[in-house]
Amino acid sequence: MNRKLMYRVRGQINFIKSNIHYLDGINRIVAFAEGEGRNAVLLARKGFEVTAWVYAKNGLKNNTISFST
């Protein structure tokens, strides 16, 4: 992963981590344009039931995520 992309990914994950308190009382989340699923995995690890939607072929061919807590 190149440095520019790595910085962007860290920024997205840090954004979720720093704003997750706004989701108190919410159990289910739908994540659109999820790509490789990093955000969905993070949210699932935090205890949310996550449905991730991917439309881009690149995101679909790179992985299939199956994650349960």
Rank of each mutant, 00 (worst) to 15 (best):
G25H: 11
G59I: 03
G11N: 12
G59N: 03
L60S: 07
K61G: 00
E49D: 13
I16W: 08
Y7Q: 15
L5E: 13
Q12F: 02
V50H: 10
E36V: 01
A44P: 06
W53L: 15
F48R: 11
A31R: 12
F15E: 02
R8A: 14
K57H: 10
R10W: 07
N58K: 06
M6Y: 09
K4E: 14
W53M: 11
V9S: 06
A31I: 07
Y22N: 03
Y22P: 00
V50Y: 03
N2Y: 13
G59L: 05
H21E: 01
G35F: 01
V41G: 06
R38K: 09
N27R: 13
I26L: 14
L60R: 09
T51I: 12
Q12G: 01
A33M: 08
I26E: 07
N19I: 00
D24G: 12
L23Q: 06
S18C: 03
L23N: 03
N62S: 07
A52E: 09
A44Q: 14
G25N: 14
M1A: 13
Y7L: 13
G59Y: 00
R10F: 03
G37A: 06
A52L: 07
T51Y: 09
N19A: 01
K57S: 08
I26S: 04
E34M: 04
G59A: 05
